[in-house]
């Protein structure tokens, strides 16, 4: 089967583009990731990830309207391509397979353990 290359941050970006659906442009994506995952995203990292995803053919972009708060600069909107969807699905399936392969005991003890720590406080 074809091997889809998708890094962790790339996957997040791809998913966020999906979430925003038609409204995905750089600052929007950045805000979304920052609010949902409570982590800061640097502009540089985001743009390189977007570029790389576009190069791989998982995203396509088009120029949007220019707005006043951007001093007349156009927005660039991103959309997931068919290949991009396949890559996302592939990533999800491989994760699930891996999840399934983990013995129950390992997961349970860990969750219980952490819950126990939390409940003691």
């Amino acid at each position: 089967m074809k091997n889809f290359q998708l890094g962790e941050f790339e996957e997040i970006v791809l998913l966020t583009v999906g979430i925003l659906n038609k409204e995905a442009y750089s600052v929007g994506i950045k805000d979304e990731i920052e609010s949902r995952l409570s982590r800061t995203v640097s502009m540089g990292a985001l743009h390189t990830a977007l570029l790389r995803l576009e190069d791989k053919g998982y995203l396509k972009s088009y120029s949007g309207e220019s707005t006043e708060d951007r001093a007349g600069r156009p927005r660039r909107y991103f959309e997931i391509t068919a290949l991009g969807k396949k890559a996302m699905l592939y990533a999800k399936e491989t994760r699930e397979q891996l999840w399934k392969a983990i013995p129950k005991m390992v997961l349970n003890s860990k969750i219980v353990g952490s819950w126990a720590v939390a409940s003691r406080q």
Partner: peptide, 30 residues
């Protein structure tokens, strides 16, 4: 054009949120 737009948009937002100095600093960092 796109990235400059992003930079300016975020900058504008930051100026409103946390003042010009902070926004300048974050801009330089970006």
């Amino acid at each position: 054009d796109y990235i400059e737009g992003d930079l300016l948009e975020v900058y504008e937002r930051r100026v409103n949120a946390s003042g010009k100095r902070m926004a300048d600093f974050r801009f330089i960092l970006d």
